[in-house]
């Protein structure tokens, strides 16, 4: 059976509504693996791919957070806010270049496959990342109202959206950093005759 026939068969199985959800999910995983094998592009390791996406997402997250500091109605950050306000246009070309870098990598290399261990680590990392970033957000809000002695925070809906978007990308980025740590632990080979990178 050729690879194409195999993929067609798996796609049919995946779309077959009479099968159970678990069976269809298995068929989809097999289809993904078959597609990955058939893809002629150069492979890229999952760790490198995760690292690149992590850096780009971190940058995107910080860009959005920085944009949210551009509060024209209330400058709660003082001189720092003025500085960012003047240099905010710099984030747009950098943000666009981050998208271009991502598109370049997506087109040049085939997307690495997540196996069962990676899925497990990724779901664990996602939950830890969300908890960590939520704590950071809560602590910064707490510090704002206690250490800086502010009683209110006036914010525009535009800046609010930017904070939410920035938070989303930072959570994703933090999850990827945690995934890299989880993936690194215990994955160093002490094998002498095989598996040398």
């Amino acid at each position: 059976m050729t690879s194409n026939e195999k993929m067609q068969k798996l796609a049919q199985r995946y779309h077959d509504k009479s099968l159970s959800r678990a069976e269809r999910r298995d068929a989809y995983k097999a289809l993904e693996l078959e597609r990955y094998r058939a893809d002629k592009r150069k492979p890229i390791s999952l760790r490198l791919y995760t690292l690149i996406t992590c850096i780009l997402e971190l940058f995107t997250g910080f860009s959005f957070i920085a944009m949210s500091f551009d509060i024209r109605y209330l400058s709660y950050l003082g001189p720092f806010n003025n500085f960012l306000g003047e240099h905010l246009w710099l984030f747009w070309p950098l943000f666009l270049s981050a998208i271009f870098i991502m598109v370049y990598f997506e087109s040049k290399y085939k997307k690495p496959l997540y196996d069962e261990l990676s899925y497990q680590n990724m779901s664990k990392a996602n939950s830890i990342g969300f908890i960590v970033m939520s704590s950071v957000l809560l602590i910064s809000a707490f510090l704002y109202f206690t250490l800086l002695h502010h009683k209110t925070l006036v914010i525009t809906s535009e800046n609010y959206c930017e904070i939410i978007l920035g938070f989303f990308w930072l959570v994703r980025s933090a999850s990827k950093i945690i995934f890299l740590i989880l993936d690194y632990n215990g994955s160093k080979s002490d094998d002498d005759f095989v598996g040398v990178e």
Binding site: L46, L113, S187, S189
Partner: peptide, 28 residues
């Protein structure tokens, strides 16, 4: 057989095989 070859045959990453060999991961 190399770890990479086994990983390729069963459709997982080499890191998964390393963990399996060390007994750090219970496979499905």
């Amino acid at each position: 057989m190399k770890q990479e070859e086994l990983a390729e045959l069963v459709g997982v990453r080499r890191e998964t095989i390393i963990r399996l060999e060390k007994g750090l991961y219970n496979p499905s």
